[in-house]
Measured scan of single mutants.
Amino acid sequence: TIEDAIKKLLKLAQKGQPYTFGDFTVTSEEEAKKLAKWLKKQL
């Protein structure tokens, strides 16, 4: 689910690992949080 993807994304971001989700490449926890907010709006 999208919720699971968001959780995984935040965990990876906390470890400092870049994470690619579709067109987004997230390289920081701050970016992960922005992406998570955006994804929730898409639901």
Rank of each mutant, 00 (worst) to 15 (best):
K11N: 07
A36R: 07
K8H: 11
F21E: 02
Q14P: 04
F21Y: 06
F24A: 04
E29I: 13
D23N: 11
A32Q: 02
I6S: 00
K33L: 13
Y19Q: 05
L43R: 03
A13R: 06
K8M: 14
Q14V: 09
T1W: 14
K8R: 08
Q17V: 15
T27E: 04
K37A: 12
L9F: 11
T27M: 07
Y19E: 03
L43M: 09
D4G: 07
K40C: 15
L43W: 10
T20Y: 04
T20W: 13
E3I: 14
Q42K: 08
S28K: 02
K33E: 07
F24N: 01
A36L: 14
G16R: 05
Q42H: 07
K11I: 12
T20C: 15
D4A: 12
E29L: 14
G16M: 12
E29M: 14
A5I: 15
F24W: 13
L12E: 02
T25Q: 05
E30M: 09
K34G: 03
L12N: 03
S28W: 11
L43S: 03
A36S: 04
T20K: 05
G16V: 07
L12S: 06
I6V: 03
L35Q: 00
A5D: 02
K34W: 12
D23I: 15
Q17I: 15
K34F: 09
S28T: 12
K11E: 13
K41Q: 11
F21S: 03
L43A: 05
K8S: 05
L10Y: 04
D23A: 13
E31G: 04
L10M: 09
W38E: 00
K40E: 07
P18R: 06
I6D: 00
A5Y: 15
Y19S: 04
K7M: 10
L39P: 00
Q17C: 15
Q14K: 09
K7V: 07
P18F: 11
A13Y: 07
K8N: 07
A13P: 03
P18I: 12
K15G: 07
W38V: 01
K33N: 10
K37P: 00
Q17L: 15
K15N: 10
A36E: 03
G22S: 07
L9Y: 03
I2K: 01
K11M: 13
A5H: 09
K11W: 14
L9T: 00
T27G: 05
K37I: 12
L12K: 03
T1D: 08
D4M: 09
L43P: 01
G22T: 07
E3D: 06
K41F: 08
K7T: 06
L10D: 01
K40H: 13
K7Q: 07
L35N: 00
A32N: 01
E29P: 11
L9M: 09
D4F: 06
A13F: 13
E3G: 07
Y19V: 10
Q42M: 13
K7P: 00
E3S: 06
F24G: 01
K37T: 10
K15P: 03
A36I: 14
K33T: 05
